[in-house]
Design a protein around this nucleic acid. Structure first.
Length: 671
DNA sequence: GTTAGGG
DNA sequence: CCCTAAC
C-alpha cells in the first residue's frame, strides 16, 4: 500500500466518507518515485530483449551479426531513454515486426521458441516489504493477425499446416489446380514485398515463403520443432520493441476423413496442455499507456492511411505488409497503447485475481471460398487476430539473463501451446460436434460466411469463466495493438525455486462500497459481456534446471484492450445507485473521491467514467422516459440525481460567491 | 493526476 | 467512452 499523497479529500467541512484506499494520485506518483529503479530494470530487460533479438537474428537471418547486434542492442538499451515512448511506438507502428507463427504439429499456432518477440518494453521495480525483486514488465506483443484457416477437402489436402502469407483475397492455393502457379507467383511477389520492407530480414522471409509448397504443403517449417520457426519479419533492432506477430497464416487442415473435415476446430489440435495461463487485467495501466502512446503516435505518424479492409483483392497484394509496417489505420494508431506504469502493475499483481481464458480470439470467415472441382470446396477462414494476454514478469536481480529468457519463452510457449481449447461458433452458436463437417455445420463455400467465430480458451479448468468471444469487429482495431505482457516472478530463492509459488492465487478484488455488488456481478460480466474485464491468471512456468522462475499471477489483456476502445459496459442499476449515493455524499466535482468511495477497486470504472455517467444521468433524468434508452433507471434514482445535482450545483455556486466561506455541510438532499 | 466539458 | 484543455 502506498502512502496517500493527497489526503485533503474529505477535509473541507463536507461530510465525506473516508477514503482509505490508495488514491489515484498516489498511484501516479509512483512512477516518479521509482524512476531510478525503473531505469535499472528497463536496462536489464532491454538488454535481454536485445539478446533475444540477437539470437533471433543469428538463427534466422545473419549468422554473423549476433555479437554486433547484441552489442548494438545493449548500447541502445542504455542510450535509449527509458521513458520515451516514441521509439517504441515508432517501432511498433512503423517497423511492425512480423513474426511468423509456426504451427506446431497439430497446433494451431505457436511462436518461435526463441521467444524472439518478447519485448522488454517496460520495467518496474517492486520493493514491497523490502523485497528486492525486480519487477520487470515484459511486453511481448505477440499477436498473430489475419491468420487464414483453410479447411480443404481431403482429396487435395496437404499434410501439416502450412503457413502462407496472404495479402489479399487470393484464394488459397489449390493443389493440383492451376492455382498452384498463381500461388507461387503470389508468394514470390509477396516475398519481394517483404524483402523490401523487412530490410535485412528478407532472406528469412523469402525462405519462409518459398518453403511453402505450391500445393500448400508446408515444409519443415510447420513442424513443431523450434528450429523451424522463422520470423516473417524482424524487429527493429535498434528499438527492440515488441513482437508483433503478424504472420499471415494459412492453415491447411490435413484432415482426411471424408466425414470429418473439422480438423481445424478440433480442440485436440491445439498443442500441449501444460500450463494454465491466467491473466490479470490491468485496465488503468493500459488506459494510461494508451493515452500517452496515442499522443505520441499522432505526433509521430501523421497521415496514417485508414485501411479498414485488410483483405482486399489482388490490388491489395502486399498491402498487409504495408499495413504492418506503416499504414496503420488511425484507429489503430490511437490504440497503440504502451506505457510504463510499473507501480500499477505491481499493485494489481496483488490486488486482482481472476482467472480468465487464456485468450480470446476473434475471427471472421470470409466468403472467399473457391471451389476447385465440382465437389471440392474450400472454406477459407480468416483469423483476424490472435492475441495472447499480457504477462508480467518479476525477476530478481540475481536472475540470469538465460533464465529470464527461458522464462519468457516458457510463458509464451505455455500460452500458445499450453492447453488452448478451440471452439467454433457459427451465428453465435457453439458448434461442439467435432465430427460434423463444415458443410454440415453450415460452413459452406457458397454461403455468406461472415458470422463465424472461434474461441480460444485456456484449458485450465478451475473456476475460469467461460470462453471469451471477441467480436470480429474488434479485430481490425485490436489486432496489432494488443500487447501481451507476461508477469512472472522470480522468488528470492531464485535458484531453487521449487514450485510452491507457482499458481499462487491472489484474492479476487473487491470494491469497498460495491464489493457486494461486484462480487456478484463480476463473474457474470466476465463470462458474458466482458471481454475486456480485468482478470487474472497464473501462468505457471516449468522450472528450468538452473533456476526456475516462479510464475505469478498475470494479466490477461482483453483483446480489445490495448488500442481499442474499451468495451462498452453499461452501468447497472446497482452501480447507478452506488454512484448516486456517493455523489449525494461527496458531491459533484470530486469524482476521484466518488470513485474511491463507491467504486474503489472497480477497475473498469474510472472517475472519468463516473463523471460521464453522472452527466448522462442528469441528462436522462431531465428527459422524458420515452426518450430514454438502455436499461431503465428507476425514477427514484433519477429523482435523486436531479436533487443531488441541484444541491451540489447550488453549493458550488455558493462557494464561488463566497470563496472564503466554508461550504455548508451537505444535507443529503434527496428529493 | 484531476477536473470539466466537448465530441 | 474518448479526448483534451486547464489546473
Amino acid at each position: 500500500m502506498v502512502m496517500r499523497k493527497r489526503s485533503d479529500y474529505g477535509s473541507r467541512g463536507r461530510r465525506v466518507a473516508t477514503m482509505p484506499r490508495v488514491p489515484n494520485s498516489a498511484r501516479g506518483k509512483r512512477t516518479t518515485r521509482k524512476k531510478k529503479d525503473e531505469m535499472c530494470a528497463f536496462d536489464l530487460l532491454a538488454t535481454v530483449a536485445g539478446t533475444l533479438l540477437a539470437d533471433q537474428d543469428n538463427s534466422a537471418n545473419a549468422p554473423n551479426t549476433s555479437g554486433a547486434a547484441k552489442a548494438k542492442n545493449e548500447k541502445a538499451a542504455k542510450e535509449e531513454p527509458h521513458d520515451e515512448i516514441p521509439p517504441l511506438k515508432n517501432t511498433v507502428m512503423e517497423k511492425d515486426c512480423c513474426s511468423g507463427c509456426v504451427v506446431g504439429s497439430g497446433g494451431i499456432c505457436s511462436f518461435p521458441r526463441q521467444a524472439n518477440n518478447c519485448l522488454a518494453e517496460n520495467s518496474s521495480t517492486r520493493n514491497e516489504a523490502g523485497s528486492i525483486l525486480e519487477s520487470l514488465t515484459v511486453k511481448s506483443n505477440m499477436l498473430v493477425r489475419d491468420s487464414l484457416v483453410s479447411c480443404t477437402r481431403p482429396c487435395e489436402t496437404s499434410r501439416g499446416l502450412g503457413i502462407i502469407p496472404e495479402f489479399g483475397a487470393h484464394g488459397i492455393c489449390h493443389p493440383g489446380s492451376s492455382g498452384s502457379a498463381e500461388a507461387e507467383q503470389v508468394h514470390q511477389a509477396e516475398s519481394n514485398v517483404v524483402r523490401r520492407q523487412a530490410d535485412g530480414h528478407a532472406p528469412a522471409l523469402h525462405s519462409l515463403f518459398n518453403s511453402v509448397d505450391l500445393d500448400g504443403r508446408p515444409p519443415a517449417l510447420v513442424s513443431s520443432d523450434s528450429s523451424s520457426c522463422v520470423p516473417l519479419c524482424s524487429h527493429d533492432k535498434e528499438h527492440q520493441t515488441s513482437s508483433l506477430c503478424r504472420g499471415e497464416v494459412q492453415y491447411t487442415a490435413d484432415k482426411d476423413d471424408d466425414e470429418n473435415s473439422s480438423g481445424c476446430t478440433d480442440p485436440s489440435t491445439i498443442g500441449d496442455k501444460g500450463y494454465k495461463p491466467q491473466y490479470l487485467g490491468n485496465h488503468r495501466i493500459r488506459k494510461l499507456l494508451a493515452s500517452k502512446v496515442r499522443k505520441a503516435a499522432r505526433n509521430k505518424i501523421c497521415g496514417g492511411i485508414r485501411s479498414k479492409k485488410i483483405c482486399g483483392g489482388m490490388s491489395n497484394k502486399g498491402s498487409k505488409l504495408n499495413l504492418c509496417s506503416k499504414k496503420i489505420p488511425a484507429t489503430r494508431q490511437k490504440g497503440q497503447r504502451t506505457i510504463f506504469k510499473k507501480k500499477k502493475l505491481a499493485h494489481r499483481a496483488t490486488s486482482f485475481a481472476k482467472q480468465m481464458p487464456t485468450e480470446a480470439s476473434a475471427t471472421s470467415m470470409e466468403g472467399r471460398n473457391k471451389s476447385c472441382g465440382s465437389d471440392d470446396y474450400h472454406v477459407k477462414l480468416r483469423i483476424k487476430s490472435f492475441n495472447i494476454p499480457e504477462l508480467f514478469i518479476n525477476v530478481p536481480e540475481n536472475a540470469t539473463i538465460g533464465s529470464l529468457k527461458r522464462t519468457v519463452m516458457d510463458v509464451v510457449n505455455s500460452i500458445m501451446q499450453g492447453g488452448l481449447r478451440v471452439g467454433v461458433l457459427l451465428q453465435g452458436k457453439d458448434i461442439q460436434d467435432d465430427n460434423k463437417t463444415l458443410r454440415q455445420a453450415g460452413i459452406c463455400h457458397d454461403k455468406k460466411l461472415n458470422n463465424i467465430d472461434f474461441t480460444l480458451e485456456c484449458e485450465s479448468g478451475q473456476d475460469s469463466p467461460s470462453r471469451v468471444l471477441i467480436p470480429e469487429q474488434m479485430d481490425l482495431l485490436s489486432a496489432d495493438v494488443v500487447e501481451p505482457l507476461a508477469r512472472m516472478k522470480c522468488e528470492e530463492h531464485f535458484p531453487e525455486t521449487g514450485g510452491d509459488d507457482t499458481q499462487q492465487r491472489i484474492p479476487p478484488y473487491r470494491s469497498r462500497s460495491l464489493s457486494d455488488l461486484y462480487s456478484v456481478v463480476h463473474p457474470v460480466e466476465m463470462a458474458s459481456q466482458d471481454t475486456s474485464a480485468s482478470s487474472q491468471a497464473i501462468v505457471p512456468v516449468a522450472p528450468s534446471e538452473d533456476g526456475a522462475l516462479a510464475i505469478v499471477p498475470l494479466c490477461k489483456p482483453r483483446p480489445s484492450d490495448i488500442g481499442l476502445r474499451r468495451t462498452r459496459r453499461p452501468f447497472t442499476v446497482g452501480e447507478v445507485e452506488a454512484l448516486v449515493e456517493a455523489v449525494e455524499l461527496i458531491g459533484t466535482g470530486r469524482w476521484r473521491a466518488v470513485k474511491m468511495h463507491a467504486f474503489d477497486h472497480v477497475d473498469h470504472r474510472t472517475y472519468v467514467d463516473l463523471k460521464d455517467k453522472w452527466k448522462t444521468l442528469v441528462h436522462t433524468a431531465s428527459i422524458s422516459p420515452q426518450q430514454r434508452r438502455g436499461e431503465p433507471v428507476p425514477q427514484e434514482l433519477l429523482d435523486r440525481v436531479l436533487a443531488a445535482q441541484a444541491y451540489w450545483s447550488q453549493q458550488q455556486a455558493k462557494l464561488q460567491d463566497k470563496p472564503h466561506g466554508k461550504a455548508a455541510l451537505p444535507e443529503i438532499c434527496p428529493a
